[in-house]
Simulated scan of single mutants.
Amino acid sequence: MTTLLVHESHWGNTRAVAEAIAEGLGTDDRSVQVVDVGAAPSPLPAGVDLLVVGGPTHAFSMSRASTRRDAHTQGAEPGHDGTGIREWLAGLPAPAAPPEVATFDTRVTQVRRLPGSAARAAGRLVGHHHLGKVVATESFFVEDSHGPLVDGELERARAWGRQLASRQA
């Protein structure tokens, strides 16, 4: 079984969540590849049975070029101005054997109860482009846009990864 986990991270928080999810997914019979969206393959490699996609929630959805530029001017890690998960998903050709898909995002705790989520938006894009069946969506929380992650979120991400792995067993 093979999982491709693609993430977009500007401050390192979403990357940390992705790595924790991968730890939870990792079993003896599962190969997990974690890649930054800028290095994500297109088309999806053959044999991927689970695609996990995650990014930060910007303006109640997935990032856009303008919100990535704004993050960069606020001190985000360089190199993320170009492609985000929105553009990567939109550019993927529909796979011959669509995998199961799980989406996640990082969100600021202050907007926990507000509508809008990069994970839900990514799930809709997956369905629109026939990239697979969305089987799970989750949000993980940061204190503010720069972070840090709220206490306990990395363990919750590992547990979510274990839950995803158990679906595949």
Rank of each mutant, 00 (worst) to 15 (best):
A90P: 11
N13W: 02
V32R: 01
R112L: 10
G75E: 01
F140Q: 14
A40L: 08
V34H: 11
D70V: 02
R30D: 06
G75D: 08
H146T: 06
F60P: 04
V101K: 00
D36E: 13
V53E: 00
A118Y: 07
R107W: 07
V108L: 07
P95N: 11
Q33I: 07
T67F: 02
D29H: 12
F140R: 14
R107F: 00
S61L: 05
H146N: 09
E23M: 07
S66L: 11
S31P: 04
A71L: 04
A122I: 03
A121P: 04
D81M: 14
P95D: 04
D28L: 11
V37T: 09
R112G: 09
A121N: 02
I21Y: 04
A102L: 09
R64C: 01
E100K: 13
H7V: 00
G82Q: 12
A90S: 13
A96W: 01
L89D: 00
S145P: 05
A118G: 15
S117W: 08
V126I: 15
V53D: 05
V135S: 05
V34S: 10
V32I: 09
L92K: 01
A65S: 13
P56E: 12
F60G: 01
E138C: 02
V6S: 06
H72E: 13
E138G: 05
H130G: 06
D49Y: 03
T106Q: 08
T27E: 14
E8N: 09
R69H: 07
H10E: 12
S139L: 03
A65Y: 07
V34T: 15
H80P: 03
H80V: 04
D105A: 09
D49H: 07
L114K: 10
L131H: 01
T2W: 06
H58G: 04
H129G: 00
A119Y: 10
L92T: 02
V35S: 13
V52C: 09
V6P: 02
G26L: 11
A76L: 02
V48H: 06
S9C: 03
G54L: 03
A102D: 01
F140L: 04
R107P: 01
P95I: 09
E8G: 14
A46E: 15
M62E: 12
P115M: 14
E138K: 15
D49K: 12
A39R: 14
R113H: 15
E19G: 06
R30C: 02
F140S: 11
P45G: 10
A121T: 10
E87A: 10
T109P: 02
A119W: 02
A22G: 06
Q110E: 14
L5G: 00
V6N: 08
A90H: 10
L114N: 08
D105Y: 07
A65W: 09
A96N: 10
R86Q: 12
G75P: 08
G12V: 03
P41R: 08
T3D: 00
T2S: 14
G116A: 03
E138R: 15
A119N: 10
T109W: 07
E100P: 01
T73L: 15
H72D: 06
A96K: 11
A90G: 14
A18D: 04
